[in-house]
C-alpha cells in the first residue's frame, strides 16, 4: 500500500507508467549531457508535456550550471518552478452563501464523478451541499448525479431530462438560499469547446448564476482528462475565453498517462490547478501541490 501522503498517493498512481527519470537516462555520470537531454526530451514528449513546454525545460536544463545538486533535483526544481505558478488551492469562502461552483468540460472527462468526489470531500469537512443537475442532455446524467447525492448525503436539485439547464441551476440556487446551504455545485453537460451554440448555453448558465449573486459563480472549474493530449490546451483556452475559468481539475491520473499536459497548461494558460484525481473512490481527489506533483512525475524521492 502506498503511504497516505500526497506524494505517496501520486507516486503510487503515476508509477504505473515509467518514471520520467530512471538511472539509464544518464550514460555518463549523472549530468545533463547531450545524450541525457535527448532521452529526456523524448520522455517529456511521451508524457504529453508538448513541444513548447518540453523545449522550455530542455533549454533551461542546458543553461543550468552543473553544481552539487543532482540532475534529478535540478529537474524537480524546474518542474516545480513551472507548476508553482498554478498552485493555488480553492478557497471556499464562508461569507459566500451559498458558495457556487460551476463545473464544465468536454464530454467524458469525469465532471459528474468529480462533483461526487467534491461533495464527499466538502461534506466530510462539515459543509452542507446541494448538487444541481445541470446536465439535462446526456441520458441518465441526472440519475448518475442523484446516486452521488445519496452516497454523500447531499441534496440534489433536478428537473426533467431536456429541461433548460440555466433554469435548473437558478432553481437550485433558490432552494439553497432558502435552506441555508453552504455550497452549490452545478453539473453541466459535456460539450466540445468548438460547439459555439453549446458554449453560448454555458455563458447563459453563468449569467443566470450571476443574476442570483453578482459574485457567483465563485468558482468555475474546468475538468481535464489526463489521458488527453495537446487538445487540452485548446480546451483550457476556449472555456476560459467563454467563461473565465478560475480552476482546473485533472482527472484519471491513475492510468499510465502522466498528465504532462499540466506543464503545457501552466506555461500557456496559468489557470490555477485545484485538484488532481488519482482513482475511482471519493477520497482519491487530492489538492494540487506543485512540488509533490513534480516529484511524482519525475520519479525522484523527496529530498
Amino acid at each position: 500500500m502506498a503511504g497516505t501522503s500526497l506524494i505517496g498517493r501520486l507516486r503510487a498512481s503515476l508509477a504505473k507508467g515509467r518514471d520520467l527519470l530512471t538511472g539509464d537516462i544518464f550514460r555518463t555520470g549523472g549530468s545533463w549531457d547531450a545524450a541525457a537531454l535527448d532521452e529526456l526530451e523524448s520522455r517529456l514528449l511521451l508524457a504529453d508535456v508538448g513541444v513548447d513546454a518540453t523545449e522550455w525545460l530542455i533549454e533551461r536544463l542546458k543553461r543550468s550550471r552543473t553544481d552539487e545538486r543532482s540532475a534529478s533535483a535540478q529537474l524537480v526544481d524546474l518542474v516545480t518552478e513551472l507548476l508553482e505558478t498554478v498552485e493555488q488551492p480553492i478557497d471556499v469562502r464562508a461569507d459566500a452563501k451559498p458558495f457556487v461552483v460551476l463545473v464544465v468540460g468536454v464530454n467524458g472527462t469525469g465532471k459528474t464523478t468529480t462533483i461526487g468526489k467534491l461533495a464527499a470531500r466538502w461534506s466530510a469537512a462539515g459543509h452542507s451541499l446541494l448538487l444541481a443537475a445541470g446536465d439535462t442532455y446526456r441520458a441518465a446524467a441526472i440519475e448518475q448525479l442523484s446516486a452521488w447525492g445519496d452516497r454523500t448525503g447531499s441534496i440534489v436539485a433536478a428537473q426533467s431530462s431536456g429541461a433548460d439547464p440555466a433554469a435548473v441551476v437558478f432553481d437550485a440556487l433558490s432552494t439553497a438560499a432558502r435552506r441555508g446551504t453552504d455550497i452549490v455545485i452545478a453539473d453541466t453537460a459535456g460539450r466540445l469547446h468548438t460547439a459555439d451554440n453549446l458554449m453560448d448555453e454555458l455563458k447563459k448558465i453563468k449569467r443566470v448564476i450571476g443574476r442570483f449573486d453578482a459574485a457567483a459563480p465563485h468558482e468555475t472549474l474546468l475538468v481535464i482528462d489526463a489521458s488527453q493530449g495537446q487538445n487540452a490546451l485548446a480546451q483550457a483556452a476556449e472555456f476560459d475565453r467563454a467563461l473565465g475559468v478560475t480552476g482546473l481539475v485533472i482527472t484519471k491520473l491513475d492510468g499510465t498517462a502522466k498528465g504532462g499536459i499540466l506543464l503545457a497548461i501552466a506555461r500557456q494558460q496559468r489557470i490555477p490547478v485545484r485538484f488532481v484525481a488519482v482513482g475511482e473512490s471519493a477520497d482519491d481527489l487530492l489538492s494540487f501541490e506543485a512540488r509533490a506533483f513534480a516529484q511524482a512525475l519525475v520519479g525522484a524521492e523527496p529530498a
Binding site: S227, Q230, N231, T256
Partner: peptide, 12 residues
Amino acid sequence: VDAMAGQDAVNS
C-alpha cells in the same frame, strides 16, 4: 477511443 487522446493511448 477519444480523438483528443494523448501519448498514452498507444499503451491502452
